[in-house]
Design a protein around this nucleic acid. Structure first.
Lengths: 218, 218
DNA sequence: ATAATTATTTAGGCTAATCTAAAAAAATAT
DNA sequence: ATATTTTTTTAGATTAGCCTAAATAATTAT
């Protein structure tokens, strides 16, 4: 099936609002889409007729299996294009959202699958969100290395890979361990070292080698 | 200014029909867009109101400077994306047109300029058509070598480079000279030699070395 | 020069996606 | 439990882009 950009935007917004399976209200969807509640009601009727969601007037609505499947494909496209924009065209992770909002509505599945291959099947987008695969499956833990992090957003250290004892000790001295909350403040372009900030501590600079091995999630 | 996809398609189609500055008729545009003449008349009124073309009812129409400028930017996007699809995603040159028809309507100028850089400023798309630069300038002669030609489309020989006297003579015997119209029939994968056909003549096979030196345009 | 044909425009409708204003239902507060 | 407030839906309009059928203008053929 092929859906209009507008319908796709509705499905995506509902998906984000409903989480695993919460009921969504007309007003919250209207707010998240910057549209009027009346417009939302109109569209809900259409999406219901197309069997993409359950909808009981006045009670709320939620995507059904088919609706989720479609939403996940749009999210897949959005995140793959964001990855492309950052990794290949060298945009900043904070500049790509709007462009991806357009790119996600391109219809060719062959195109997106080739793009996926070209990018070597990335697991996470530049914001650390997981990229659904061609079947809509999300990789469970959205874990990524400190190197790929957006600035000034809090993450939790979830693992350290390829570590030597010395490095772990040094990290321990700086209070960097599993569970530590931190934010990346800056990335120095000349050597890819990374400045991080832990609450109530002085900033710390980590070399590319070290940063690469620190795995985090939101 | 931002124009709808539909308007962009009209501008592009008119551009292709009018060549340098021929008047275009309602019917020919309708045919090329697969639309009804009445729809074309509707749209012409809008495009005239937006000062993108000259239009006298019953007499015909042609893009003005502004209209040409917009058309060239769409063509630029189309051809750059085609180049991307072929060179980076490894689609065949004959598979990319439809995808590019969608991609050409993306609005971000920054995106297309970065793509241009990423692709290293290609001059020609995979069909040998010239790619307008960011200012809409077309590299004057869309001249390319026989080696890069699509099959079964007529081209005119516009130059021969790196030539030895012997080669020119040999080409002369085969009636290949500036102005000759020819089509490429086949390209042999094992040695990159090229089979060409000139009207009313037997096919001729050219080695990669020779084909490389023959420059043609449409 | 006039009739026949072809091209173009006008008039009026349709659909998707939006909106505003008013009505109706549900939730909340006293 | 009733009144008030909030949420949601309905009713009716609007715009862009398309359509068909009919009217009009231009071209062509006799």
């Amino acid at each position: 099936m092929k859906y209009s950009s507008s319908k796709e935007n509705y499905l995506k917004a509902i998906y984000h609002l409903q989480g695993e399976s919460k009921m969504v209200s007309t007003n919250s969807l209207a707010a998240s889409l910057q549209a009027r509640p009346a417009s939302v009601t109109d569209m809900l009727k259409k999406l219901k007729k197309e069997k993409l969601l359950h909808y009981e007037p006045y009670l709320g609505f939620r995507l059904n299996q088919e609706g989720k499947k479609v939403a996940l494909q749009i999210i897949r496209k959005h995140r793959l294009w964001e990855y492309f924009l950052v990794k290949k065209l060298h945009f900043g992770w904070d500049e790509v959202h709007e462009m991806a909002e357009e790119l996600e509505h391109l219809t060719s599945t062959r195109l997106i699958d080739r793009l996926d291959r070209f990018l070597e099947f990335p697991q996470m987008d530049p914001h650390g969100d997981p990229i659904p695969d061609a079947n809509g499956k999300l990789s469970q833990l959205k874990q990524t290395s400190l190197l790929n992090l957006p600035f000034n957003r809090a993450f939790t250290v979830s693992g350290v890979s390829g570590q030597s004892q010395e490095m772990l000790e040094w990290l321990g001295q700086k209070n960097i361990r599993i569970g530590t909350r931190l934010e990346v403040r800056n990335k120095l372009p000349f050597d890819n070292s990374v400045e991080i900030k832990i609450k109530n501590q002085l900033p710390v600079t980590l070399s590319e080698q070290v940063a690469k091995n620190i795995l985090v999630h939101e």
